[in-house]
Design a protein around this nucleic acid. Structure first.
Lengths: 246, 246
DNA sequence: CGTGAGCTTGACTTGTTTCAACCAACGTGG
DNA sequence: CCACGTTGGTTGAAACAAGTCAAGCTCACG
């Protein structure tokens, strides 16, 4: 791993900063936990971890001693079948809670993999639970996050069960674009898009070959531009129409 | 509706009994709520409702003023696309909480439909929330139920994204059999199975025609017997092998 | 007795997979 | 510096799983 040392460095740097670049959603919890680390050393409350792209962070069924929130980079939750088939349950963007159920149960239902280089911060389960008991509003925040997680799952079920390849991929793109737009402006409709074909394939239940075909088809139709890990929505409305929204 | 009056009758009967035939899981909550209905009239705490088979109980996006638990019959949560395509997210068996997120948010993310005649009991959201604040263990119970809901969702994503028609239907059958077995013995491996082909189709992302073909194939292979809304697992291990478990 | 919901079967069509080859970019090690 | 394996992307031809359309049937219900 070329960036092993770089990652290490980043890790120690960040340990000194309360909430690094970590934007948006789960932010509520970062804020609520960090300020009142009364008496406890910082590393008792949360632990910073850096992982290189394409690494498996943990496997389904493993015990996770904390609740991770993504700070930088993209990750994915994955289920693997014994014969090697893989299904991506969700992509996790910076600022997102990895898995709400980890607040109550240490056993992870799915594997976690780094798509890009990832930096995440793992909060002590007890610290979060304690904070929620102190401030009931945090319980509502968690419930909201958990419900969002469900909503994304339900949408994926709909995509996989009812939609064609074109629709699934349009749905994925629109979904990611909306989530990214929510946490910062997207100049010229361009967003970072670090996914490989096999990520898209594993997330949409298609093969990488076919996912590639659909994308070139979208390119030729002038719907998107995609190169160098950057994706531009040229006709966002047309994409949304394919998905059936709008 | 032929059984309109019968349903009505059942409803009033049940109103007098604390927790009717309602078995298993969410039971914890029934018990915790009913005994200490201090001062409040019973119908302030929970409301009993009976619905005929094939009726839509509510639609996605509607506001539900309570948290329903199925007491009798089978129901299904459904998402409908504007062009008529339908996806069943989950089948709900007697004793199961309809949707955990309803404890915190009154807007239902999905429609609810009765598969058979259904009787459900709708608890006041505030009553449940109050009970949870009094007894933190109930919060853990809810978290467990919610995590189960997620696990079923994740499994469905895996089925729809990665598995063939045979595997999906085997998975559905095994899944239902396991859940039914958990709440009572299944003599001779026989269980009630009120699903129509279109239910199976909508749940597995197949067409009713193809779902039917797979089932007759299973019948011919001696894996199952299915008639008169009763399903017998003749070779449960073989079914599990198809799914990839065991 | 008619009507509508549900199941089965057959023939045909289509979307997606599979297999294979090939090319480009990149990091590694000699 | 070049040779090399790895990872990722593209394209084409053939195979296959599932969808579509249509017909005929049973059964329950009013």
């Amino acid at each position: 791993m070329a960036n092993g040392r770089a990652a290490m460095q980043r890790q120690t740097d960040l340990a000194t900063v309360p909430a690094p670049g970590c934007p948006a959603f789960a932010f509520n919890m970062c804020c609520a936990l960090k300020p009142d680390a009364r008496g406890l050393p910082a590393d008792m409350q949360a632990q910073d971890v850096a992982v290189a792209a394409r690494r498996t962070i943990w496997r389904a069924g493993e015990t996770i001693d904390g609740v991770p929130i993504i700070c930088q980079g993209w990750a994915a939750t994955v289920i693997t079948l014994s014969d090697g088939r893989r299904q991506i349950l969700a992509f996790l963007l910076p600022g997102e809670l990895v898995c709400a159920s980890l607040v109550y149960n240490a056993v992870s239902p799915s594997s976690l993999e780094a798509v890009t280089d990832v930096h995440y911060r793992q909060f002590k389960r007890q610290a979060i639970r304690a904070a929620m008991e102190r401030d009931p509003k945090l319980t509502l925040t968690l419930a909201k996050l958990w419900a969002d997680e469900n909503a994304r799952g339900d949408r994926l079920i709909l995509d996989l069960g009812q939609r064609s390849a074109d629709e699934r991929i349009a749905s994925l793109i629109v979904n990611l674009a909306d989530r990214l737009a929510r946490r910062g402006p997207m100049p010229d409709g361009t967003m970072e898009f670090p996914l490989r074909l096999h990520h898209i394939a594993d997330a949409t239940g298609l093969t990488a070959v076919h996912a590639g075909r659909v994308l070139t088809e979208f390119r030729r139709a002038g719907l998107i531009e995609l190169s160098d890990r950057a994706l531009t929505l040229l006709k966002p409305d047309e994409l949304r129409r394919i998905v059936g929204l709008l």
